[in-house]
């Protein structure tokens, strides 16, 4: 038995907002693959649960008329991994979703949970950072849109106000159009492991084969997922090639601040961060058509 004080299942988004207004301290539960584990380990007890797991209206991926990609917050990793629109337009997100846990975890875990838990290692979060995702929140005051960089406040804490739930993760058209990306998860095992470090890179080349825009985000390089802005600026306008990849990586490691933990030392994480930046940009440039 899980340690709930009470349980309420929302019947719709409005109903979830109403239930959260009634119980301001309630814990929102999507797939529960973080929340239920915390109850088992007694990090959470006697909680009022508001389950949103039944809200099918928050499942699925839609290409909007303006070209934005809207991912419902309850969409599972496996549905993201295999979605046609994602694979055609943002395959890097399919790649990231496919590295989470194992098949059963990918069936229960949601992108909403992965971005609301505020966890730095979350496998889809760095790609959402690298794609400048917009977080959609719905609460009693209406709907808000927050750029993902501003959504993360500190480790384990995101900008969700009382009565709000996250309803979608939106990838704007300009953010993915003509962009090619690559996601890498460095972990000790090929499956069922949390990232020691993860890195999502994407690039857009111009007609002359020079870098028009390169973006890089890391997980576990700081308390929350983060972009490495100096790396992005350093290669802007450079011709695609090996030099760019090394300049990119040299700058990237100056932006990050990983820590020592039982999983890995700070020095090792910096080493990995450099290598993943080189490989990430190289592979992204290749996917964009460059010969390197």
């Amino acid at each position: 038995m899980f340690d709930f004080r009470s349980y309420a299942a929302a019947a719709s988004v409005e109903d979830a907002v109403r239930l959260l207004a009634e119980k301001p301290n309630a814990v929102i539960m999507a797939g529960g693959s973080d929340v239920l584990i915390k109850m088992r380990s007694r990090d959470m007890s006697q909680v009022d649960v508001v389950s949103i797991y039944g809200l099918d209206e928050l499942r699925g991926i839609r290409l909007e008329p303006n070209g934005d990609i809207r991912i419902g917050s309850l969409t599972s990793f496996s549905h993201i991994e295999h979605d046609e629109t994602v694979n055609r337009l943002i395959p890097v997100l399919s790649q990231a979703a496919g590295t989470v846990g194992g098949p059963q975890i990918r069936n229960i875990g949601t992108i909403g949970g992965n971005t609301c838990n505020g966890v730095t290692s979350a496998d889809t979060a760095s790609t959402c950072f690298a794609l400048d995702a917009i977080i959609e929140l719905t609460g009693s005051e209406g709907v808000r849109h927050v750029p993902i960089v501003g959504f993360y406040l500190r480790a384990g804490k995101v900008d969700i106000r009382p009565t709000e739930i996250q309803t979608a993760v939106i990838i704007p058209r300009d953010s993915y159009e003509n962009c090619f990306g690559h996601y890498q998860k460095y972990a000790m095992r090929n499956a069922m492991d949390i990232a020691t470090l993860n890195c999502s890179v994407n690039v857009r080349l111009n007609a002359d084969g020079a870098i028009e825009r390169a973006r890089i985000a890391y997980g576990v390089a700081g308390p929350v997922p983060m972009r490495a802005g100096s790396a992005e600026a350093a290669v802007c306008g450079m011709p695609a090639g090996e030099d760019a990849a090394h300049i990119f990586a040299d700058a990237a490691i100056r932006d990050i601040n990983p820590r020592d933990s039982w999983r890995a030392s700070k020095a090792f994480r910096i080493h990995i961060a450099h290598e993943l930046a080189v490989r990430g940009l190289t592979e992204s440039m290749r996917r964009a058509g460059a010969t390197i």
Binding site: F2, G32, I37, S51, S78, P103, Q104, N107, I108
Partner: peptide
């Protein structure tokens, strides 16, 4: 504890009975 729910695999130890 893996079972099929509507054709997909789920670990039933972290899936609520009411779901």
């Amino acid at each position: 504890c893996n079972v099929l729910v509507d054709g997909e695999c789920f670990n039933s130890c972290i899936y609520l009975a009411v779901w």
